[in-house]
Design a protein around this nucleic acid. Structure first.
Lengths: 247, 247
DNA sequence: CGAAGCCGTAATGTATACACCTTAAACAAA
DNA sequence: TTTGTTTAAGGTGTATACATTACGGCTTCG
């Protein structure tokens, strides 16, 4: 029915609700812990309560929103420890993907994808730090982690990683803004790339345990980034999602 | 309206829908891959489409049900490889929980819980194989894995483990029926218990890496159980959920 | 001045109505 | 017989109505 003239065409109302609420959440419009009123959101996004409710239920499963025992949902308060654990867990999962990829072997096509991507990132890092195309680096970084995720050929692991990185701060490029805003951290991008290369090498040489350890260590970079971001008011000011992080 | 005289009081309609559909799914009522008609389920469970729909959406996130691109949901077909990967992943997650527990240390109370539980299981295994109280063993086994899950004190990891073990076959005691129905596998329960003991020991000695490796290996027992179950028609006949496993 | 009880407002959970779309079956034509 | 077409039935997505329940402010009493 319906399909009235809404903002973004081609999507269902539920999809609009989902992305709409996500955007509201992570732009810091709501207080952490505040109740999310379905009618209020529905009016704000110009749709009925039904898709809003569906989106909230989904966001609860994703961990972006907490269910209130007495009913309804509230903005989730993220403890710093939770985020650190989530990053650690991403390292574990990516490590498992890398290990399985090494143990099971990857196709020549996958190997080629890795290789060309590594070269691409190398090229990006060739220019002096200040001129770095940060946007492109972030995109390449995302692709790398996608490749790792798919390299093991397990839909189970891919699904779990997708779920985990739906969380705002656990995503592979969630905290790359640190390197953009604080030039003194440009060097860690070079380190990251050397880790990328080592992970690919380990996978190709079927060194499962090494691949796993490297991927875990690689995730620790994000940990450092989080610590930096939490202690830097410039960054906190520029990234409203960080207001959801308490303690 | 609502709160009419339904079967199980004290629960919401959504909860009834969730458990009702789960039960229908894993009792093999539906063909694998079959569409799940919301009106049909609603009538069968004596409630309206709304909670049914909510439950289906949740079951999709849990992985029990697949979303059909054109709309609606279908019974998920489980590939054997998917289940093996899920078991492997449970091992990885429990391994991580055990490692973190070792690294971070556990409280004396937690240590005591582990110790008393281990003794309890020892007592159960004291009797000759045929007389084993299988029900009690299954319960104790579940408690052990709960303790491991909580030993690391990370809600993030606990949440992920809960999600994963919501899947029917990845759960720690999902395939213990093998040991009940095939007496020749009673010995593996003794092995499992020795692994339990070693895991606890490693955690207490702060040997993180060993604890992780042991927990992973422990999960491999379930892998063997699955292989046995898939090749034994007596078991397949007695456990309808296995009909959802294809290939 | 503080605490406890009460009432009104608002929000949730659920049911139901309805338009669009998918699907499958019946039918016609080659 | 097979293929293409039409049509009818059923199913989904969404909106809305309604009863119940939670929450906040106000009053009243200790």
């Amino acid at each position: 029915m319906m399909e009235s003239e809404s903002q973004e065409r081609g999507q269902s109302q539920s999809e609009r609700a989902l992305s709409g609420i996500r955007e509201l959440l992570f732009s810091g419009v709501f207080e952490p812990g505040a109740r999310l009123s379905e009618p209020a959101i529905a009016e704000r996004l110009q749709l009925s309560r039904t898709p809003v409710r569906a989106a909230l239920a989904r966001l609860e499963q994703e961990g972006a929103v907490d269910a209130i025992p007495s009913g309804g949902f509230a903005v989730r308060k993220f403890a710093t420890d939770d985020i650190l654990d989530a990053i650690e867990l991403r390292g574990v999962l990516e490590g498992t993907a890398a290990r399985l990829a090494a143990e099971r072997g990857i196709s020549p096509a996958q190997s080629m994808s890795f290789r060309t991507l590594l070269s691409e990132i190398d090229a990006l890092l060739q220019v002096p730090g200040e001129d770095l195309d940060h946007e492109a680096f972030t995109a390449c970084n995302a692709v790398f982690h996608e490749l790792v995720k798919e390299s093991c050929g397990s839909s189970v692991i891919a699904r779990e990683l997708d779920r985990l990185t739906a969380l705002p701060f656990a995503s592979p490029n969630a905290l790359l803004m640190v390197q953009r805003d604080l030039p003194e951290f440009h060097g860690s991008l070079v380190l990251a790339q050397s880790q990328h290369r080592a992970i690919v090498e380990a996978i190709e040489l079927r060194e499962g345990s090494r691949a796993e350890a490297l991927a875990r260590e690689h995730a620790r970079l994000a940990r450092r980034n989080l610590e930096v971001a939490m202690n830097d008011d410039r960054i906190k000011a520029r990234y409203p999602a960080l207001t959801l992080v308490t303690a």
